[in-house]
Each structure stands twice: as structure tokens, then as C-alpha cells.
């Protein structure tokens, strides 16, 4: 699955890690983004606000994963494991939510009964 294309690649466990100061900068960045999120959170939630909140969330998520979890420096295999989980989760759960939120139309009875066309011909 995630490793299908990963044939015998040797990645080191990353010796070029950032310095402490760089980590602090990353944390500061995260703090600033969180501040922006909180400010946005108080605005009336229209599509733009929700979109920017979700974008900021993804940025924070990726920053922590790439820097603090060292995915930026570590083997691609780790990234693939994590991404497989994230993408599968996103796929199946978004599908459920679409069904539940009636994006797909949750039940057939929402079509008024008299609007359902009669079957063309019934053969017995």
C-alpha cells in the first residue's frame, strides 16, 4: 500500500535537524497563526471566514508535522504512512458527512410521491 513504490530506499534518520532557535521561531509562527484563528473565530462565520480558518488549521497541522515531527527531514516512508491514514480518514468520513448532511439526498421519500414517474411497463 503506502510502501508499494518504496523499494529498498535508504534514508538516514536525519542529522540536519534545526537548531533550538529555529524551533522557537516555528513555535512563534504557530502562536501567531493561532492568534489569527482566534480573531477570525469571533467574526460572523461566512464561507470566507470558514475557509480561512480551515486553511490556517491545515497550515498549523502541516507545520507541526513537518517540523516538530521531523517529517521534513525524515524518511518518505513515515510521511506515506501518516498521509495514508489522513487521506483514508478524510475520504471515508467526508463521504459519511456528505450522506448525513444530505448532500447526496438522504432519503428517497423526499421526492414527493406523485412526482415519481410510473414504471414504463409492468410485465408479469
Amino acid at each position: 500500500m503506502a510502501i508499494a513504490a518504496h523499494e529498498e530506499t535508504v534514508h538516514g534518520s536525519g542529522h540536519a535537524h534545526p537548531s533550538d532557535l529555529q524551533y522557537v521561531y516555528v513555535a512563534l509562527f504557530l502562536g501567531v497563526v493561532t492568534g489569527a484563528e482566534i480573531v477570525l473565530g469571533y467574526r460572523h462565520p461566512n464561507a470566507l471566514i470558514i475557509g480561512s480558518l480551515l486553511t490556517l488549521m491545515v497550515i498549523k497541522f502541516a507545520t507541526v508535522a513537518l517540523w516538530f515531527m521531523h517529517l521534513r527531514f525524515d524518511s518518505l516512508l513515515f510521511r506515506r504512512f501518516f498521509l495514508t491514514g489522513i487521506l483514508l480518514a478524510a475520504g471515508v468520513y467526508i463521504a459519511i458527512m456528505m450522506t448525513a448532511f444530505q448532500f447526496f439526498g438522504n432519503d428517497t421519500t423526499s421526492v414527493p410521491l406523485n412526482k415519481i414517474p410510473p414504471p414504463a411497463r409492468i410485465t408479469r
Partner: peptide
Amino acid sequence: TGLSNEKLAMWAFLGSECLLFG
């Protein structure tokens, strides 16, 4: 792969946890 077993195991576990919290 030259990767540590334990770290690989942890990443596999975290991949699994994504579906739990999702």
C-alpha cells in the same frame, strides 16, 4: 530500510489513530 523498527511502528500506529480521531 535502514529505518528504526520502533519509529516505523509509531508512525503506523499514528496512521491508525487518524481514523480513530477522524
